[in-house]
Design a protein around this nucleic acid. Structure first.
Lengths: 243, 243
DNA sequence: AGGAGGCTGTGCAATTTAGAACAGAAAACG
DNA sequence: CGTTTTCTGTTCTAAATTGCACAGCCTCCT
């Protein structure tokens, strides 16, 4: 938690490495990378295909052979892992501008997680070989991808720290706030898309009954409202911030 | 856990993207990247300096201005985060071939974690600007860095899943096994360097007394031996694997 | 209308965990 | 060598968490 607030992944489409570049050095300032990944992908010729999936449809499953990377155009993707005992955990929820399945680039022969469409989803599928070529030949693309990997890294690290430090109540509060700011119109109060208590539980590593309990607690305190759709009040922050 | 065994980061020095490259496609096979990061770094002229630190010395601290990336030549580094309530968590223990402080490339103005030398440590410090230049101009370097980021990603993700799924007993068992295979002479039984129960506790997000309790339990069961140095028996795997 | 199935609100017993405390062992240090 | 300091073994209580169970609502479907 602690530094949760700091750097919220900005999973935006426009990515830039080096925001503070030409500040303190007497070096030719490089132009910041403000391009859109979409534009770069557009340049790719073969080895790139568009795929659409309906809500709840699987893009790939844990254990599948891994030979492609995906890029999200529209919609959302849920990455999950199943434990030996059948428990399920949600590793990430991704959206426009995010990649997934990139583990195969690191010589992972099989998928370690499952990817499921959360809304009607449109992806660009890039064959592994194509992706490697791309990264090799297109400097801009490689830089953008590095920026993406760094942001993912930071986010996963934050999630890990959250797990290490915080109680399930705080983790739930943090999660709701993150989900709320998701669309990043970043108003204090926002609506959260369809997301069952079960899924929420799997994201913070606890049980559904626990989530239900805290959701009601938050509701009674006026931090959230729901009866179908879910509104998150920024006052929920107090839960995260309190010692 | 579940897939813990699968892909243990191979934090080796020689990194290669694309292990299975020229397998199933009628495309000119690219030569696999088997080079050593050290060699690439050697080519860098200015903006690169060598720094040595003694055991327990800080390389940087949470909150410091972040303007450089580090590469580990020899020794180990412990990355930690402190919570509001003063609790400490260990995010990672890194060694030769690993980078750290790379968050600054993603426009993180401040360090989100502290880095402390664990043994006598030798690092190559690369100014942020230099690193950005490097990534831009040296394709090989960029590829190597991508491979590194991917492997880190995978490892952090595994750690997160471990936290989400497993009890502290299993997490400790997994941690010990990972640490044991660290030196990667990967014999079933290995010695673990100096690591207090306190540190172990901070790595798996529990209390020292809990660690002490399980360490003794494991010892009684013959899974580990210690009296200064710590030997891990591969039989400890049964703890991780059992339902 | 009449299920079937998914989601939610609740309660409760069994476990796990946190946290603090204290003594002994070992290591560091002057 | 004596003395801090650090690390470890152990115990105990309060608190958090799991796992389960069941009832009430929905929505979807036939």
């Amino acid at each position: 938690m602690a530094q949760r607030a700091s750097k919220s992944r900005s999973s935006a489409s426009a990515t830039r490495i080096e925001e503070l570049s030409n500040r303190d050095v007497g070096r030719a300032p490089r132009k910041p990378l403000t391009f859109h990944p979409d534009l770069l992908l557009a340049k790719v010729g073969t080895g790139k295909t568009t795929h659409r999936y309906r809500d709840k449809h699987a893009i790939f499953s844990q254990g599948d052979r891994a030979d492609a990377v995906f890029y999200i155009e529209t919609g959302k993707v849920k990455l999950t892992v199943v434990s030996k005992r059948g428990k399920e955990a949600v590793i990430a929820i991704l959206q426009h501008g995010d990649f997934f399945g990139e583990g195969c680039l690191a010589a992972q022969p099989l998928r370690i997680s499952s990817a499921v469409a959360m809304q009607n989803l449109s992806t660009t599928r890039i064959a592994k070989e194509t992706m490697v070529e791309l990264l090799h030949k297109e400097t801009d693309f490689a830089e953008m991808f590095i920026a993406y990997l760094l942001s993912r890294n930071i986010r996963i690290e934050e999630d890990l720290v959250d797990q290490l430090f915080n109680s399930s109540e705080k983790r739930l509060a943090r999660l709701l706030l993150l989900l709320a700011h998701y669309g990043k119109e970043s108003r204090p109060e926002t609506v959260i898309p369809n997301m069952s208590q079960e899924t929420l539980a799997e994201m913070i590593g606890t049980t559904r009954s626990r989530v239900s309990y805290f959701m009601n607690k938050f509701r009674k305190l006026g931090f959230i409202e729901y009866n179908g759709s879910l509104h998150v009040n920024s006052a929920l922050l107090t839960v995260v911030l309190r010692d």
